[in-house]
Design a protein around this nucleic acid. Structure first.
Lengths: 193, 193
DNA sequence: GTCTATATGAAGATAGAC
DNA sequence: GTCTATCTTCATATAGAC
């Protein structure tokens, strides 16, 4: 029985690696099976379709990202510390989990409409946390920001785009990148450091 | 697809639309042919392969983006005006040409190694313009920036990520987005407006 | 240059043995 | 639960008529 779970999970991990490296459409079910050390047919013993594998990965990734952002927002009551921590954590997550993040951010279009709808709710949640953190600082009078939704969008873009270019063997660590972008976020809301 | 221009060009435009909407791998040569109002075989009369179509689109897009950035950098001698204009123009380009930009930014992995190398040179050129503009303001003492390459990276990300989410029917115009991001860029380098 | 027709292969998914 | 073998469909690309 433990073996069932293992095989299921090996397939998910193999799918994630292939989706991240080559993209969903360029990945074949044979790639996935080979990556898990199984025959092509084994994929369908554990999963209904290639799209279901994508959905499982995307859902887990979005839940993880949302938890990271929510957790970061709860770290401090100070508006500047809160915003910096959200952007720092979200950026670091994209760098550390760039394989997952690439699938999470760039393969939404390959999901079925029903699955895409489930994912969209998580994405709105992430955006909402960021908007509230910026609005909180504006209300307290420590941020100057004429366009809260637009600035939230910009901060999301900073972090999300990390998934596109980040490499483990690059010369910038995930932690250092998070620090840098967290500080840039405070500058974007005109916070006097 | 309107039957304007020669067949070669109609095929390129049809390919660009499909690549942008569904991605390179999810696009079939039949899609491209249908988009150009031709039979599947006609594609190969004018182009060697699907990948060649991608390369032509990617090359023209990169040349255009590089020209936009270089042109923006030449608009002003003032460091703040120069940087704001570069980020404004680069962002606006991604919004206005989000179809092209999506192919330019997200389909590099589908190019052949030889073609990818040609594209990489253009990308380095764009990054270089931005680094120099930030370094110029730091040297003049009007920007405060501890990490020039990192900040350049962040500004590129801001603009590039626009291609991922921008829609023509959204409630934010390409021009307004460019203005917003141009101003954010100045805040990122600690410029006192 | 354009078409119809097709070669060739690979894709997603399934059947059935063990 | 895993495999081998296969079904069916659809992909890229080509051949050859007009």
């Amino acid at each position: 029985m433990a073996r069932t779970g293992d095989a299921r999970d090996r397939l998910v991990r193999a799918a994630m690696t292939s989706f991240a490296e080559r993209g969903f459409h360029a990945t074949t079910t044979r790639d996935i099976a080979a990556g898990a050390g199984m025959s092509p047919a084994a994929v369908y013993v554990h999963h209904a379709s290639k799209e279901e594998l994508l959905f499982l990965i995307s859902l887990a990734g979005h839940d993880d990202a949302l938890a990271v952002v929510t957790g970061a927002a709860a770290q401090s009551e100070d508006p500047a510390d809160r915003l910096r921590e959200i952007v720092r954590a979200f950026t670091t997550w994209h760098a550390e989990h760039h394989t997952t993040a690439r699938v999470v951010q760039y393969e939404i279009g390959a999901l079925s409409p029903a699955h895409r709808k489930e994912i969209a709710a998580r994405r709105r949640g992430i955006e909402q946390v960021l908007r509230e953190a910026i609005g909180y600082g504006v209300q307290r009078g420590v941020f100057s920001c004429a366009d809260v939704p637009g600035t939230a969008l910009a901060m999301l873009s900073l972090a999300i785009d990390v998934a596109r270019w980040f490499r483990d063997d690059g010369d910038r660590s995930a932690a250092a990148l998070g620090e840098l972008y967290g500080d840039l976020a405070l500058r974007m809301v005109g916070h006097r450091g």
